[in-house]
Design a protein around this nucleic acid. Structure first.
Lengths: 269, 269
DNA sequence: CTAAGCTCTCCCCCAGCAGGAGAGTCAACA
DNA sequence: TGTTGACTCTCCTGCTGGGGGAGAGCTTAG
């Protein structure tokens, strides 16, 4: 019979751990003094402890170890754990790649003007108007027009708050002329289609996102940064890039205050 | 000015998270109503949020993010984080390999009689007696003799409690005859060398350990299991195997109750 | 008999939020 | 003007696997 301190030396675990395992029912001492509460262990418990430690070193949680050693549904748990570990590894490698990219950007003297983040965009209902515009500059005049059309045909339709208004680019590549775009604006409930404007559900998507501050002329740099990032971090574009307008001429006079979010739908690769 | 709920939708984070970031001083709202406590955010904070999220997605902790964005010692932190991540990956792969090995053992119908665990053995003072014995069976008679020698020359020397008494095998390979062994016994303080017995410090080592229950005849299976495990899990032996005697003839009559721990010093590879 | 070294229970702490209680606020609608 | 209903506030608890420490009781050797 060993007291807890001796047993902890035998098994190379801390006393705290042994008490904890007792508390959660994972390793009960062979005997516990009813009056003093002293725990007494036998060498037979060492095997049990060894088993627990082996499983812990594989990363199993305490309840899982209880189940496994209890002999219930071991295989499922093992396979589940394996899948979890694989996913953890995935996440870890993702982090490492991002960190590498971040460091290398920094070393190149780039001030990391563009921070790229992966987000989940929830599904939403939008009205959309797809067209081809001759030039980028025609965009800002077109948007109010579309808004007016919708308001005329659907007086009850309300935009979400905060607004989520974006352009989806349907061209596979960058173009300066005759750009195939889709103006989208999230609304709280669908309305009736009219005059080229259609209501539709946008499914939830995972996107790589970055913010561009300032006038639209220099927005190409943001796209460049995010596409470079995608490449370096093992993501693949999977849908139409969206340009979401947060601040612009309608609420900020100074163009240097404008804020646009670029969202590139991605697959995790 | 956005209220917290709106801002949370803009940034795709939860309200809880924003409140938490406020609490820890990572992202303070542009304005907080003194009377109601309502938090009001501006779009300018979106950039800050984006930065925070980007760093979080690289796995930085909140204090680290504070430091990085505070501009103090970024490089060190980045490098430190990188090293940590690499180590995490190491640990993860270790876990995965162990799990694989465990599963495959199980699938082969082996009941996992031997659980292998990696432990740190702390440094200790031992007396040791190295010799070559003709056969394994001579061991058990030799050990009390050595104990007696030590006791005679060093009456004040005390063994540690619990005992740590082991044989280190100095042959590189398995032998049945003329085995080069070193009998070691941990003591609380060094004594004077005498009659082939020397006191020495054993440094702390990392070992792969397993328990063998039963008579010594079948202990080969334990060695086989642990060496196979080493191989499958990317560990390399790095020192003399130790056989530590926990239960034996001296305290258990029935040989099936004997308990021996096998410890193979390893490098993490 | 006492002092040292164990051991006991109980409570707080870690990260990064999530969930919920109970109370106050804001804007619209009747 | 009152009343909803949707928001928001603060405060508390919980999650993992124990670590650290307080204060009290136990054991054992000198």
């Amino acid at each position: 019979m060993y007291r807890i301190g001796e047993f902890s030396k035998l098994g190379k675990v801390t006393v705290k751990t042994l008490r904890y395992y007792d508390e959660v029912g994972l390793l009960t001492p062979a005997q516990t003094d009813e009056w003093t509460g002293y725990r007494y262990y036998e060498t037979a418990q060492l095997s049990r402890l060894q088993e627990i430690l082996a499983l812990r070193q594989m990363g199993f949680s305490i309840p899982e170890i209880s189940e496994i050693t209890g002999g219930r549904g071991e295989e499922e748990i093992l396979e589940k754990r394996k899948a979890e570990l694989e996913e953890e590894r995935h996440a870890l490698e993702d982090r490492l790649r991002r960190l590498h990219h971040y460091i290398s950007q920094k070393q190149e003297g780039i001030h990391m003007a563009y921070q790229i983040v992966v987000k989940d965009i929830p599904a939403c209902t939008v009205f959309s108007y797809r067209t081809v515009i001759p030039a980028y500059s025609d965009l800002m005049s077109l948007m109010p027009e579309v808004g007016a059309k919708v308001a005329a045909a659907n007086p009850q339709v309300k935009c979400t708050e905060p607004e989520y208004c974006f352009i989806a680019y349907h061209d596979g590549e960058y173009r300066e002329k005759d750009i195939d775009i889709e103006i989208c604006q999230a609304v709280t409930s669908p309305g009736t289609d009219a005059d080229g404007v259609v209501f539709k559900q946008m499914p939830a998507v995972k996107v790589a996102s970055t913010l561009h501050k300032g006038a639209y002329e220099s927005i190409g740099a943001a796209y460049a940064a995010v596409f470079q990032w995608l490449d370096a971090n093992g993501y693949k574009p999977a849908g139409e890039p969206r340009e979401s307008y947060i601040d612009g001429i309608w609420n900020k006079e100074d163009a240097s205050d404008w804020l646009t979010e670029i969202q590139i739908p991605v697959t995790v690769a």
